[in-house]
Amino acid sequence: MTTSALPPLREVIARHGLSASKALGQNFLFDEQLLDRIAGVPGSLEGRHVLEIGPGPGGLTRALLRAGAHVTAIEMDRRCMPALAEVEEAFSGRLRVIQGDALKIDPATLFAGPYAVVANLPYNVGTALFTGWLSGEAWPPQWTSLTLMFQEEVARRIVAAPDTSAYGRLSVLSQWRSNAKLAMKVHRSAFTPPPKVMSAIVHVEPAAAPAGVSMRVLERVTEAAFGQRRKMLRQSLKGLPGALHALEELAIDPQRRAETLRVAEFVAIAQLLS
Rank of each mutant, 00 (worst) to 15 (best):
I252A: 08
S214G: 07
M184E: 01
L18K: 03
Q175P: 00
Q255C: 06
A183F: 07
Q255A: 14
Y123E: 02
F266V: 06
G25E: 07
T109D: 15
R256N: 12
V97G: 14
S189V: 00
T260N: 04
D101A: 08
W133S: 09
V267G: 04
G212I: 14
S135T: 06
T222A: 04
Q26E: 13
E86V: 09
I269A: 10
R230K: 12
V186A: 01
I252H: 08
P241G: 03
L247T: 05
A102N: 08
L173Q: 10
F111C: 04
A90I: 00
G113S: 15
R169H: 00
L29I: 10
Q175C: 00
A20G: 06
R230P: 05
R157W: 15
G93V: 09
M1R: 07
T72C: 04
I201V: 15
K196S: 07
G227H: 11
V117H: 08
T192M: 12
G132T: 05
A5G: 14
T260G: 09
L146D: 11
V217F: 07
Q271S: 05
P42T: 07
L51D: 01
L233V: 02
G59H: 06
A119E: 11
I252C: 13
G17F: 06
F191Y: 04
H49I: 02
A225K: 05
W143N: 03
F266I: 08
L182C: 00
I158L: 11
L35W: 10
E223K: 12
L148T: 14
D31Q: 12
S199M: 10
L6K: 09
C80S: 13
S171M: 03
R156E: 15
Q33D: 13
F226S: 09
G40P: 10
G100F: 14
V221H: 04
A166E: 15
G56C: 08
A69W: 05
L121R: 06
S236E: 02
D163T: 04
G40Y: 05
M184L: 13
G68R: 02
T2M: 03
G212C: 14
H203N: 13
V172Y: 01
A190C: 14
W139H: 11
W139Y: 13
V118C: 06
L170E: 07
R262F: 07
F111G: 05
P42D: 08
L9A: 01
L103K: 06
